[in-house]
Amino acid sequence: MLRIQNLSKTYPGGTQALKNVSFEVNDGEFLVVIGLSGSGKSTLLRCINRLIDPTEGKVYWDNVDVTAAPPTELRQIRRRIGMVFQQFNLVKRSSVMTNVLSGRLGYVNPWMSLIGLWPQDEKKRALQALGRVGIADKAGERADALSGGQQQRVGIARALMQDPKLILADEPVASLDPVLSHSILQYLEQLNKEGITVICSLHFLDLVHRYATRVVALKDGVKVFEGSAQEIDRAKFKEIYGEEAQEVRAASM
């Protein structure tokens, strides 16, 4: 279980990205975080695995204080938290295989990995992960030779290599053609059904309805809503996205 307590983040420039945010995520949930660009969704997700250090507040994961973990322990924690990014964040010049294998860096012998040696079973695991997202045949290609949708699937395969208990997905479909959104989210949904907790930030409300078991909404760094997707009516929608907002639908299924 993930417990977020009074989390605040103020950037060195003075921007307050998160203001006293608290909520809990139970194991096995598919929690979707919504809100306008700049509402603090990315900062929130990055505070969970401390890619960004929060200014105040606590993050507990299975009763371990993530916010207080020293570097070595933090790396142990991060091993079990996969992350998928809006811009895929692959190493473009490296092969798909190397990108997927790098998800395993927290587990393997650091010195062997530094000289680029990977055990045979890790390579097999990487091919299986690629197979799960349907692109095992692309293993040898350079990451930037793949289409956007394929690159995001490599991103998911990399997260799978971590044998994650939790996956943080930061706008995983925002850089993709809307018609590809479901193809990516279905993989996350599948993993969620296998028991992996998913915390995912999304833009399109119809995607939220389709995938979320629960929703948290942020506005200017403040949590303005927590509940099921069905509870977001017209009034709530205006409250979260502002008066001028209008609902846009992603490609229908």
């Binding site: 790396r75 990014f85 895929f88």
Partner: peptide
């Protein structure tokens, strides 16, 4: 971005 992704995997 790719540095961020690698840090997130627990790489040293």
């Amino acid at each position: 971005g790719s540095l961020e992704a690698l840090q997130a995997t627990g790489a040293n």
